[in-house]
Design a protein around this nucleic acid. Structure first.
Length: 424
RNA sequence: GGAGAGGUGGCUGAGUGGUCGAAAGCGACGGUCUUGAAAACCGUUGAGGGGUCUCCCCCUCCCAGGGUUCGAAUCCCUGCCUCUCCGCCA
């Protein structure tokens, strides 16, 4: 959520910056609601004041044993007026809140202009695309060859976009999560966290998945209005919802391994083959909560932490900065890490690291006490995948295959899979 | 699933329907004292929002949402959450 003062005092400039994201701000509608809000709020509050003063004087008169009947008569008329004004105010505030809830975060100044992922800008490359002296297969062929990756049985059990892993691949999948968690907790100083995989609407609103992206979420058939998490960002970031954090406790750094559930309603027909885009996948997620001045630096560090995993696994990748049009709803600035997939002969997203600045903090009332002002102020929140486990598994399969279709386990994982150096 | 208790400020914890945004204590901050610190003493100390907004004024908030009333932290209803005991269970 944007600062409503920004919307009030700087709406033209805000609208321009939102254009970079391809968002059309409805200036007239907002201005109209806002001026209505102001009028009716002032009216309501002055009526409330009037009532408070009168009621107080009734109390005093009664205490002195005076006749309160005339006073009662005087105040009687106020009730209806107040109720009417109050109801009207509630409606306007609600309308304004709904409007504001659907405005995305404003992109940072150094976010490149562009409409789609085609226009993201590469800023770094690590390693060279793996070369083979044979025609490399993609992970689907590799998995089917050694019978450890089964999409057909998964679709019998559930439906499309699910997978069953067995034996070596299932083991590798587990080893990857352990490996990632260990690196982030032991080398990068994150607090390991276990969180709910089911959340309520409030939490999803806090991180910005709701109200706009309801169709991406899996709902639970239940009258409590629960959802399966689409990312651990939701429970992890909401850890600081409605809090005022001591300055010396910042930054907070959380890591959690969770499954993620996405209905991917908007992407039918995209990445239908293989494990790239599933309804259920595992992710190790990194979340930072920082002072506003620290978030820029934190973003670089967070991204670096995700990169370390790829480096230790020896997976070639590049870093791109997302252009305005590809930037997520809540994000002011995002770096994507894209791993090299020989099977697709392309770099594909494996991690997305974003600085949300105060956008989520405002939605979830996450604050810190600024020692300089003594006042509670909004924190900045950041998150990134470190990494998407399923896609890392694919990347290892495709980059570490040999001519026989076997997969060689990267050395960094040997401690996590004792006795297994080759799968297939 | 059954029975009971309870949700008040950073924390503990009072609060006969009428200056209660809320006693008291703790904590924190400032000051006095001290070479310094501690102790002691004095003082300050909730959040959100609005207005003709550096002064100032006003509104809202005692889990949430309704209701009764001129007036609700206090009374009534509903929901949520927490705790205790029993049952069941990984």
């Amino acid at each position: 959520m944007l600062d409503s003062k920004l919307i009030r005092d700087n709406i033209e400039e805000t609208a321009e910056r939102l254009n970079v994201k391809g968002f059309e701000l409805d200036i007239d509608a907002i201005n109209e609601l806002e001026s209505h809000r102001k009028t009716i709020q002032v009216k309501t509050e002055s009526l409330q004041n009037e009532r408070n003063v009168s009621s107080k004087s009734i109390g005093q008169a009664k205490a002195k044993g005076e006749d309160i009947q005339p006073l009662l008569k005087e105040v009687g008329l106020l009730g209806d007026q107040l109720k009417k004004a109050h109801d009207e105010l509630e409606i306007v505030k609600q309308q304004l809140h709904e409007k504001l809830s659907e405005i995305p975060n404003v992109p940072d100044a150094d976010v490149p202009v562009g409409n789609s992922e085609e226009e993201n800008v590469e800023i770094k490359r690590w390693g060279q695309p793996t070369s083979f002296d044979f025609e490399p297969k993609d992970h689907v062929d590799l998995g089917q060859e050694n019978k450890e990756m089964d999409f057909d049985i998964a679709s019998e059990i559930t439906g499309s976009r699910f997978v069953v892993l067995r034996s070596g691949l299932a083991r590798l999948h587990r080893a990857l999560t352990q490996f990632m968690l260990d690196i982030h907790t032991q080398e990068h100083d994150y607090e390991e966290t276990y969180v709910p995989y089911i959340v309520n609407r409030k939490s999803l609103f806090g991180t910005g998945q709701l109200p706009k992206f309801e169709h991406d979420q899996f709902t639970i058939q239940d009258d409590r209005g629960f959802y399966l998490i689409s990312t651990a960002e939701v429970p992890l970031t909401n850890l600081v919802a409605n809090q005022i954090i001591d300055a010396e406790k910042l930054p907070l750094k959380f890591v959690a391994h969770t499954p993620c559930f996405r209905s991917e309603a908007g992407s039918y027909g995209r990445d239908t083959r293989g494990m790239i885009r599933q309804h259920q996948f595992e992710k190790v997620e990194l979340v930072w909560v920082t002072k506003p001045d620290d978030s820029y630096d934190a973003h670089e560090q967070l991204t670096q932490h995700a990169e370390v995993i790829l480096q230790k696994l020896g997976l070639p990748y590049r870093v791109v900065i997302l252009c305005g049009g590809d930037l997520g709803f809540s994000s002011a600035k995002t770096y994507d890490l894209e791993v090299w997939l020989p099977g697709q002969n392309a770099y594909r997203e494996i991690s997305s690291c974003s600085n949300m600045q105060d956008f989520q903090a405002r939605r979830m009332h996450a604050r810190w006490r600024n020692p300089n002002t003594g006042k509670p102020e909004l924190v900045h929140t950041l998150n990134g995948s470190g990494l998407a486990v399923g896609r890392t598994l694919i990347a290892i399969m495709e980059n570490y295959q040999d001519v026989h279709g076997r997969i060689h386990i990267p050395e960094a994982l040997h401690a996590y899979m004792p006795g297994i150096t080759v799968i297939g």
